[in-house]
């Protein structure tokens, strides 16, 4: 630093003195820079073109992930044939499994063995007789809210279909520590519909 360094101001308080040193140059520069950045940032995000806000970022991120997740799959329909097809499709069941792990395990257990909710790994069901019923129960719930309705919570139809398919795939796995069967035994998923 330059010559006037370490000149005392002449102030003295209870023995404490002060130097009259200038502000460090780098300090002033960074302070000024942070203020300049602030102006540019505000203009860039809020006064420039649209699409810089957090919600636009969110939409872009959502689209990107959904493209990775379902880009090759298209949009599924929640019908019997689709469900029967995908319940054995290891590749796509992972999407259903992810939803199951996120939302369903707290009641149905990690492997579907049943906790507060029913065991999904035996052949007994309470509100389901055909594979399409699984979609209905997921969407609208059942048993007076014992099974909550998920239709506003799972945003994409493919997730609903693949979750239902995943649940269907759990049948007969008889997970360890499973809850006792509830409801009645129903025909195999691919059994022809009863007249």
């Amino acid at each position: 630093m330059s010559a006037p360094e370490n000149e005392l101001t002449g102030h003295e308080y209870d023995g404490i003195e002060e130097y009259d040193n200038p502000l460090p140059g780098w300090w002033s520069a960074l302070f000024a820079l942070s203020a300049v950045f602030a102006v540019f940032y505000v203009v860039y995000v809020h006064l420039g073109e649209e699409g810089k806000d957090l919600h636009a970022e969110y939409d872009a991120e959502a689209a990107e992930v959904m493209e990775i997740r379902f880009g090759q799959l298209g949009t599924l329909t929640a019908d019997r044939d689709t469900l029967l097809q995908y319940k054995d499709d290891e590749k796509w069941l992972v999407a259903g499994k992810a939803v199951f792990q996120t939302h369903c395990v707290s009641c149905h257990g990690k492997d579907g063995e049943g906790l507060v909710g029913v065991n999904l790994t035996d052949d007994h069901y309470k509100h389901i007789t055909t594979i399409e019923d699984i979609v209905k129960v997921i969407e609208d719930g059942a048993a007076g809210g014992a099974m909550p309705a998920w239709k506003n919570r799972i945003p994409h139809v493919n997730q609903v279909v693949l979750t239902a398919a995943y649940v269907a795939s759990l049948r007969g796995t008889h997970a360890a520590g499973g809850k006792a069967p509830e409801g009645k035994e129903i025909p195999a998923w691919d059994a022809p519909a009863e007249p």
Binding site: A62, T75, V135, E139, V157
Partner: peptide, 18 residues
């Protein structure tokens, strides 16, 4: 109508979510 019923007709995956 539930989402599943209305979805296939008019929504692409990205739009549904975004």
């Amino acid at each position: 109508p539930s989402m599943v019923a209305e979805n296939p007709a008019d929504a692409t995956p990205a739009r549904t979510v975004g």
